[in-house]
């Protein structure tokens, strides 16, 4: 890991990587959502949303746990397929 790499942005500083990994690990430790439960959560979410928005792309839903200053966040990114408009 050279100074030049950092300068030209080739590689992220390993201390930043450590901090980010820790933040993710800790929030998962605390919230206790297993990968299985996360998958189930995604499936349930897409089922509910599909009732209102049929174009939801169930396979592409991303749910992430984020650590915030005072509260943690469960963030869902729910992509919708663009269907050709009917005239």
């Amino acid at each position: 890991m050279g100074f030049l790499d950092t300068l030209f942005g080739k590689r992220e500083r390993s201390s930043d990587i450590a901090r980010d990994r820790l933040l993710t690990v800790l929030v998962h430790d605390r919230v206790k959502l297993t990968p299985d439960m996360m998958e189930q959560l995604k499936a349930d979410l897409s089922a509910v949303i599909a009732r209102y928005v049929p174009s939801v792309d169930a396979g592409a839903i991303e749910v992430t746990l984020l650590r915030g200053e005072s509260v943690d966040h469960l963030k869902a990114d729910i992509p919708l397929r663009r269907t050709p408009q009917k005239l």
Binding site: T6, R13, S14, S15, D16
Partner: peptide, 16 residues
């Protein structure tokens, strides 16, 4: 190592 960004700093650890 901290000053080179190769080890978490005191503040990183305290914040976490």
């Amino acid at each position: 190592m901290v000053s080179r960004g190769e080890m978490m700093s005191i503040d990183d650890v305290l914040q976490i």
